[in-house]
Structure formats: structure tokens, C-alpha cells
Amino acid sequence: MKTRAVLIALTLLAAIPNAFATSTADAEAFLKKSVNDVVSIAKSSPDSTALADSLRPLLQKIISFDAMTRRAVGPGWRQFTSEQQKEAIRLFSTLIIRTYSGKFTPGELPEITYKAATSPTLERVEVSTMTLYKGSKYNVIYRLEEIDGWRITDVVIEGVSMVANYRTQFDAEFKQGGADAVLGALKKSVSAP
């Protein structure tokens, strides 16, 4: 009986790394496919505005704008009404898509080398890449989470997290005027050329 219990425990222990390895591999495969899709769209886009329009449907499927907006706003999110939350997600996703598309210059395509992925928890994976773009190398880390399938929840370029960067900006706005100030600032940024 004791031996049986030990065997079960050992089997369970052996299964844990496998579970992590499977989720890491799944997330990595999802990211590679997503990045390839983005690059193939970027190849055919004449400028960054057209690229943003072409990328929007794809990015809506591969990025969790909901999680990004929520974390970028922080605890103040609870004070947003349901309508304000929807509006914030809509505006922030526009801003993120524009920021992401703005990184590409037509005709210049990145060369991406994928490094070993890590899995801090069962539902989270971080894939580190070395991206060669316009002759310069950048360390880009993609953070992914399993939310209705794998979704990108943050992009960290040379140590600078996109969500953390917006979080510091939203914090200041929220302290000044709550949800209305955050939405006002978002609208202003989205409407800026």
C-alpha cells in the first residue's frame, strides 16, 4: 500500500514539469505563428497607418487588451463603471495597436531569434527573443497568459514594459481626476495625430 502511494506521488511529481513544458511549448508555438502573421501583414503595408488598420483584427485575437487595460489602470479600475471600462479598453487598444504598428517601418522587417521560454506559473509563459531590426539588436520579451486560449498580455522591450509604462502615466491621471481624467487623457492621446 505504501509502495503504491509512493509510486502515485512520484508519477504526479514527474507529470508537473511535463505540464509546464506542454504549456510553454503551446504558448511559444502560438507566439511564433502570431509574429509570423504580423510580419507577413507588415510586408504588404505601405505605411504605418495602413498597417495599424490591417493589424487590428489580428491583434484583437492575439492580445488581451482587457487584461492590459485593467493592469495599466491599476486598483482604480474598480471605480470605473462598466461603460467606462468598455470605453477605456476600446481607447487603450487603439493606442496599443498604433504604438505597436509604429515600431515597423515599411520595407524593414525584423529578424527574430527565439530564446528559451519560461513559465512562472501554469497559466503564464514568458518568451524572450532577440530582435534584429534596422541593424540594432533588441531584447524583446513577450508575456503570455492562457485567457480563452493563449494571449499576449505585455511586451517588454529592453526592460521597458509597455503596461508598466502606461501604468505610471494612468496613475498620475487617476490621482488627479479619477476615471474621467483617465478617459479624457486617453481620448486626447488617441485623437492626437
Binding site: 493606442l95 509604429g102 526592460g159 521597458v160 505610471t168 502615466q169 494612468f170 498620475a172 491621471e173 492621446s189
Partner: peptide, 21 residues
Amino acid sequence: QNAIDPYIAVRSGYIQYRDKA
């Protein structure tokens, strides 16, 4: 580009970058 407050965006970006370095 696309910052809510460019001053804070640069400050946050600089500190994150240097901490990583």
C-alpha cells in the same frame, strides 16, 4: 509617441531600462 504624459513615459522608460541594465 502615443504617450498619455510624455514626461512620465520617458521617466518610467528610463528607470526601467537602467534597472534592467
